[in-house]
Amino acid sequence: MKLWLLDLDDTLLMDHQVSEEVLNHLGQEVGVEGLPQEVRKKAEGFFQEAPFYPWAERIGHSALEALWARYSTPGLESLAEWAWPFRERVFREALQEIGGPAERARELAEAFFAERRRYPLFPEVPGFLEALRAKGSILVLLTNGVPDLQREKLFGAGLGEAFSLVLISGEVGLGKPDPRLFRMALCAFGVGPEEAVMVGDNPERDVQGALLAGLRAVWVDRGHRSKDPRYPAHLEVQDLREALALLEV
């Protein structure tokens, strides 16, 4: 494979686990259990009421990310104004649901906003990327989300210079699984779909998009998404190094 398209969240960068850890820690601080599950449920429900929800869904910006995105990208000023009342409401109603101190909702929302800014890579990622570069592969990051948050994650994880091209859905106006986003990467380097592979953890967005664009697809099972039989990947792995076999394809 000549061109490798790589997802960011929960493929290269630990995302789900970090959010769970921070929310569990905050729950312990206020003496409640089940805060991660309740915050996710409330956030997803209230997020769907937002006037920009169709846009967020199209670019793959999640409800949980809305709890810590800065929305500093020009043009997102209205989201920045919307965000703090949303966050406070999420934590207040989540705490009420599990018998916690609802009066501390703003405090917990601010704490999550601050403490969630951690960007650990999965252990195999540095070696995996180095192996690809050593073989002369072209590396492209293909990630859904709002620009300022995805770039904060990218540089926070030390991957700012790791890719020949970075395509963020919120910048280009297209999100995975739209095959046009995948084809942008192909066109940028003059590579045919038979010479490219997409590696990601989300069957519906990463694998489906790759298949629609005619690319090979690698599904990375990180343990918190179920396999989707509607979108069969060419290869299923639990460690990115297992995908290196495709270097010789």
Rank of each mutant, 00 (worst) to 15 (best):
L5I: 02
L5P: 00
T11N: 08
V18W: 12
E21T: 14
L23T: 05
L26G: 04
Q28M: 13
G31R: 09
V32I: 09
G34V: 07
V39G: 02
R40H: 13
K42C: 07
A43C: 14
F46Q: 11
Q48R: 15
Q48H: 12
A56V: 03
I59H: 00
R70S: 14
P74K: 07
L76H: 09
E81T: 14
E81M: 13
F86W: 10
E93R: 12
Q96H: 11
A102F: 07
A102E: 14
A114W: 15
E115Y: 13
E115M: 13
Y119D: 09
E124T: 06
L129K: 07
E130K: 14
L132R: 00
K135I: 13
G136T: 09
S137M: 13
S137W: 04
I138S: 00
L142W: 08
T143V: 03
D148V: 07
F155A: 11
G156M: 05
G156A: 10
G156I: 10
G158P: 04
G160C: 13
V166K: 05
I168V: 15
E171N: 12
K176R: 12
K176D: 02
D178F: 01
F182H: 02
M184S: 07
A188E: 03
F189N: 00
G192F: 07
E195T: 07
V199I: 15
N202L: 11
D206V: 01
Q208L: 04
G209F: 02
L212S: 11
L212K: 09
L212Y: 10
L215G: 01
R216V: 01
R216F: 03
R216G: 01
W219G: 02
G223H: 12
G223L: 07
H224E: 10
S226K: 15
Y231S: 04
A233V: 00
H234M: 05
H234R: 09
D239M: 05
R241P: 09
E242N: 08
L244K: 02
